[in-house]
Design a protein around this nucleic acid. Structure first.
Lengths: 126, 126
DNA sequence: CCTTCATATCGACGGTTGTCGATGCCTACT
DNA sequence: AGTAGGCATCGACAACCGTCGATATGAAGG
């Protein structure tokens, strides 16, 4: 567990590639979506379509101040640290989480509107 | 293309396993979800997390009277008939589509609230 | 009955994915 | 300078997935 005192080191906000919001305004239903729209949406959904990654998203969002480091997430899921890091990387690359490295620890947090964008695409009511 | 005149044969409504609505009332964010909730949701998301299947859902929903047969869907996607049937089976088993066999043709339609249920789980607003 | 046609199923093949142990990197503390 | 610890990366392996051609099933029509 990281100590939450004042941090002396540099911060490195990582927010890689793949905007989720690209597909934000496509209703999916009512008139067929294009192939590239489908490919974009599928990439985000594929990142979410894993039990461990869903629990990671849920745990990160429900953690103190909305962020959690790898060490907070490894033990409760019963998987090794490399596996958790790998899943977190997948979520960051999909635009669902951000990675903020402070000192030795890497803090992951939910991208505010990422899930809402996916939710809006799948919603039939407007 | 199937002729849309009156149909003389038996109807076989197929609606297999896996209720999507099981996970309908779990917010995903705010307090971690359980392992089984994550597994259920992941199964539905995995069914959606494919470009072809997303386009299938979109095309079925946008088709005349909300249903389409395999022959309507094969050509526009540029894949073979067995592949399309396989994807459709995946979507039916995930509870996203229904299969209604009338005569020689199999009509697929969207399960009304299936996508809305997934949308609600991913939504952060309320 | 035999043919035609729409669909499902089967078996196979290559590519992707989830997981691990081992290792390397980098920060902080002594 | 040396050490400890958190995290990322690498290589490997088994399991799974998307796709195809071939084949089976089953209904409609001649």
């Amino acid at each position: 567990m990281p100590h939450n005192g004042h941090v002396t080191t540099a911060q490195t906000q990582t927010r890689t590639t793949l905007p989720v919001v690209e597909t934000c305004c496509t209703p999916l239903l009512r008139e067929p979506i294009t192939a590239s729209q489908a490919a974009d949406l599928a990439r985000v959904l594929k990142a979410l379509a894993d039990p461990i990654r869903l629990r990671l998203v849920s745990m990160v969002a429900g953690h103190d101040s909305g962020e959690a480091c790898v060490c907070d997430l490894t033990e409760p899921l019963g998987l090794t640290q490399p596996t958790i890091s790998h899943h977190l990387k997948t979520l960051v690359e999909a635009g669902i989480l951000t990675r903020d490295k402070r000192g030795v620890w890497a803090y992951y947090a939910l991208v505010p509107s990422a899930l809402d964008a996916v939710s809006a695409v799948l919603s039939t009511t407007r």
